[in-house]
Design a protein around this nucleic acid. Structure first.
Lengths: 143, 143
DNA sequence: AGGATCACTTGCAGATCACAAGTAAAATTT
DNA sequence: AAATTTTACTTGTGATCTGCAAGTGATCCT
């Protein structure tokens, strides 16, 4: 456990991983703009550390040699359950106005969400996960 | 999620919570000696912040007026799933020599572990959780 | 060729951290 | 009752880390 915390025991690493996993972010620019305002030197440092830990990997985009695409590794994807619990706890106990029904649904369908995240990763599907949460492939409700 | 990370997005907070939850630690002294060596000022600061966030609460021990007993609140106990996933991930991907069978068992019995942690909390049972993991009340195997 | 974009790096002030030492209150020993 | 010990901290001090602004160099766009 302390091993895990040495890697992402800080305010930013897990947010980066979240953006990578559920928002489909790929590039330095996206991380920088989107989070709650991470400094560029810190972002660079975190990306370096996460890459060194084998959680993410970078590759240059073919169509644009400037761009680096960051991507989660298997080791990174395996953090999905952790992120989900973090999200659930935060929604339940943080004083956010999160839709309760959604959270409950997520709690009931943990395993399904995990496999959904994994599927997207395997298929390199970059569509954000957030808008459609619990209605993946079970009962197509309206909205 | 960023809310959660603001509270325990550092190297020590979650370790303190772990010690509280699975090792049955209660006092300043125990935290200080046990962790991997946290500085006393940092420990004091983290305990204060966790208390301010409503994750732990302190009460003086009757039998010894010097001692403060820290205890998880409901909000704190709800972190059990998060901690468990952290542990699972760490054992699987950190290069620790963790017993694989144990980890697998924990993965299969997530829900059971959660309720076990909760039961101990409700009954104020301070026995460490670690030695006996997956064989709680199902099939009493030998060791 | 000139400018914009991208992924960083550098410099610096201020915050945070680790380590050692000290303090106040309660308990224990003498 | 006085002296010592234990417990939970606080206080200093230097080192490290963070956040912000301003570059830098490579690559694209026109």
């Amino acid at each position: 456990m302390s091993i895990s915390l040495e890697i992402f025991g800080d305010r930013w690493s897990l947010l980066i991983i979240r953006d990578l996993m559920v928002r489909g972010y790929r590039t330095f620019k996206e991380f920088q703009g989107a989070g709650e305002g991470i400094a560029t030197n810190i972002l660079a440092d975190r990306l370096r550390k996460l890459a060194a830990a084998g959680i993410i990997a970078a590759e240059v985009e073919e169509s644009d040699g400037r761009k680096l695409n960051y991507r989660l590794t298997k080791k990174g994807i395996d953090l999905a359950p952790l992120l989900l619990e973090l999200l659930i706890w935060g929604s339940r106990h943080g004083d956010t106005e999160a839709p309760c029904a959604l959270i409950e649904q997520m709690e009931k369908n943990r395993a399904q969400l995990h496999s959904e995240v994994r599927r997207r990763w395997e298929q390199r599907d970059p569509t954000p996960l957030i808008p459609r949460f619990g209605n993946g492939n079970k009962s197509p409700r309206s909205e």
